[in-house]
Nucleic acid binder design. Structure first.
Lengths: 200, 200
DNA sequence: GTCAATGGACAGCGGCACTATCCAAGGAGA
DNA sequence: TCTCCTTGGATAGTGCCGCTGTCCATTGAC
């Protein structure tokens, strides 16, 4: 199909597709002449992925770049997959240090976590920001939140390991991690209402 | 203290404080003359809250407005608190319809949820976006995610109900909901690494 | 032969969260 | 008193981001 058909199929304007081509978010079509190129199903899929990431995941264009690069790289062993995937994910607040409290938390939980994990820094920043906003976050609450997120992670890993290929597992982990976050946030709101109604 | 001292105390430039005053995010100080006003501890706290929300919660200036309005309103009964709080929270994707699948999900779970809840629409949109990005989200996975988020919500409600006043409970629910989301996201990443390492 | 579509280059836009400039009035130190 | 700095207020500008609009030469379908 030509670019205008790709635009029609995906609902994305031609101008925006050209922009994605310029930015390297969309691979060029197969040129059939100097002013004509052919696009296929993989282009449709890519456009849908890029739009979903841009519109719903909060990672910017640069983040989409990094995610696409991770998906394109030959996926490493299962051991390294998580580390590579998490380093490819844009993580807000991963600049600062790891707080003592967060270090103690993962120690207490007995979580075997890479000490340089971006998520450790992000967690430290997020906890500090919540406290600055006046939210009381006790160690006990953090432990209970962590236990719940361990259940979430178990689902994530079950789905990822069920993938038929390492590339599919990589896709599941990287894209699933960023795209399911909003799902979890919405579920949390609903669960709050549900729990409140049951208790009230 | 004067505005320059407020700026020094909070680390926020005077210009930005003036901007917050203009936008109504910061209440005016007590005017001691036409070119002098006195700011107090509640201003410091408000500035910290506004900055935490702007920098770390993803809700924009408009969302901060809506949150502050909810905090200022006389908090209703515990029954209504959650509904009022959630309507005040900016919820991306709350424009669309509620998908059948999401409706069936809350039915299956037996969650007593208000059918007009913004989170229902947000969840529908988030699930659709994840699917568009190629993430396989089975009904079973959604159920397991929902169970985990029910545990999270139980912690949320425990903390909120421990508040000594309805106003404090409102603050805990509204601010806690948006500021703890990033904490949960970071914990999910860490839990993924931990679970992966344990299984590998 | 005609005319719309294409690829390519590049500037412009709209929204957002500030940030800079300017001004008159008012207070504080010399 | 004089001078200089700060304040509040108003208005306009900045930088970033994700597009979007314009222009052009080439080309291919009708």
């Amino acid at each position: 199909m030509r670019i205008s058909e790709l635009a029609e199929t995906t609902g994305v304007p031609v101008h925006t597709l050209k922009y994605y081509l310029r930015e390297g978010l969309l691979m060029p079509g197969e040129a059939t002449s100097r002013t004509r190129a052919e696009y296929g199903a993989e282009h449709v899929e890519r456009v849908r992925l890029v739009r979903a990431l841009v519109e719903h995941s909060g990672v910017g264009i640069a983040g989409v770049h990094s995610i696409l690069a991770a998906l394109a790289a030959p996926p490493p062993s299962h051991h390294e997959l998580l580390g590579v995937a998490h380093c490819a994910l844009p993580t807000p607040g991963d600049q600062g240090p790891v707080s003592e409290e967060v270090g103690a938390l993962v120690d207490d939980l007995g979580w075997p976590v890479w000490p340089e994990a971006p998520a450790l820094r992000a967690l430290s920043a997020a906890v500090a920001a919540a406290r600055a906003a006046g939210v009381e976050l006790s160690t006990g609450s953090l432990h209970r939140y962590a236990a719940a997120m361990a259940d979430v992670a178990a689902v994530d890993l079950d789905v990822a390991l069920a993938a038929e290929s390492p590339a599919a597992a990589m896709h599941t982990v990287v894209v699933g991690t960023v795209m399911v976050d909003p799902v979890l946030v919405a579920l949390r709101r609903l669960a709050q209402e549900s729990v409140s109604a049951r208790r009230g």
